[in-house]
Simulated assay, not measured.
Amino acid sequence: MRRTVQRRTAVGFTALLALFLPIALPAVASASSSDDVIVLDGATSAEGIAAGEGATFYAGDLNTGDIYRGDIHDSEAKRFINVPDGRMAVGMKADVDNDLLFVAGGATGKAYVYSTETRKTVAEFTLTTKAMQFINDVTLTEDGAWFTNSASPELYFVPVGDCGELGDSDDVETLKVSGRAAKPLKEGEFGFNGIASAEDGDTLIVAHTAQQALYAVDPETGKSDRIDGPDLEFIDGILVKGHTVWAVQNMVNQISRLELSRDLSSFKVEDVIKSKHFNIPTTVAKFGDTLAAVNAKFGKQATQYDVVLVPAWD
């Protein structure tokens, strides 16, 4: 039964992704072993990564939804949470203080929250029931978790209490985004992708893949303003620390480090981070001066999925 569910989920995502990719890609072998590569042992796919406590990271198997846990000093990450059938794992963030892992559920239209202490499912939220949906990424603020939908100009907010208390799907709030970011998508385009909070949660920074852009979104009103700067081709996951943004550009195998202006109205590219081990990286986590990026290998025939370590600064 699990194999059937996985195949149906994978086919649905692959069909959506095929519309997004401009060309078919040839098959390639898996990445070779290296001190800079951490293998997700047994993973059938990959997409999201989150920093945990210390050197710990969590990564997800996109197709099955299973969660892997590893250490950036080790060569392998092991399956940590074997989730129920029919789930997916896309972007994710760890709430270290409350031992919680928030995971975007992709084509399921859901979000999942797991305990990193007991490995149990703490909550499952239905964010949307629209026919076309892809819950892509998540960011945490002091008040809760925000999720993106790559098929619709909406953000979803799940409130979280001071001690990690969670409600149910009735507590989910939908924020309709306005402005240029809400421009209708063409068939097969990915809209909102990565998301991060800035200014202590007063502003949300959202990556828009089809528009190759970053937007500042007001979490109260949904008003969006494009952040002026060069086009960011194939922008995917983003990480924001202060006024620095690391923008993962999946199909061009690079991470651009950007510097935001004080008022978040513009950015400039400080440097571009590359690695011979990048194989369509999608999301990134930061550990001091080290970035950990997960290789998704979309459109390729891979037998191994992995995390690549690179310097955060040029």
Rank of each mutant, 00 (worst) to 15 (best):
37 V>A: 07
37 V>R: 15
37 V>K: 07
39 V>I: 15
39 V>R: 08
40 L>I: 05
40 L>H: 05
41 D>M: 04
41 D>E: 04
42 G>H: 07
42 G>P: 03
43 A>W: 02
43 A>R: 01
43 A>M: 05
43 A>P: 06
44 T>W: 00
45 S>W: 10
45 S>K: 09
46 A>L: 14
46 A>N: 10
46 A>M: 13
46 A>E: 00
46 A>P: 02
46 A>W: 13
47 E>G: 04
48 G>T: 02
48 G>R: 05
49 I>G: 03
49 I>V: 05
49 I>A: 05
50 A>T: 05
51 A>H: 15
51 A>W: 11
52 G>F: 10
53 E>F: 08
53 E>P: 03
54 G>F: 05
54 G>R: 05
55 A>F: 08
55 A>Q: 04
55 A>L: 10
57 F>P: 01
57 F>R: 05
58 Y>S: 12
58 Y>A: 03
58 Y>V: 01
59 A>S: 04
59 A>L: 12
60 G>L: 12
60 G>S: 09
61 D>F: 07
61 D>A: 15
63 N>W: 12
64 T>C: 10
64 T>R: 12
64 T>N: 11
65 G>P: 12
66 D>W: 13
66 D>G: 01
67 I>L: 02
67 I>Y: 05
67 I>D: 01
67 I>K: 02
67 I>F: 06
68 Y>H: 03
69 R>D: 06
69 R>K: 07
70 G>C: 00
70 G>D: 06
70 G>A: 00
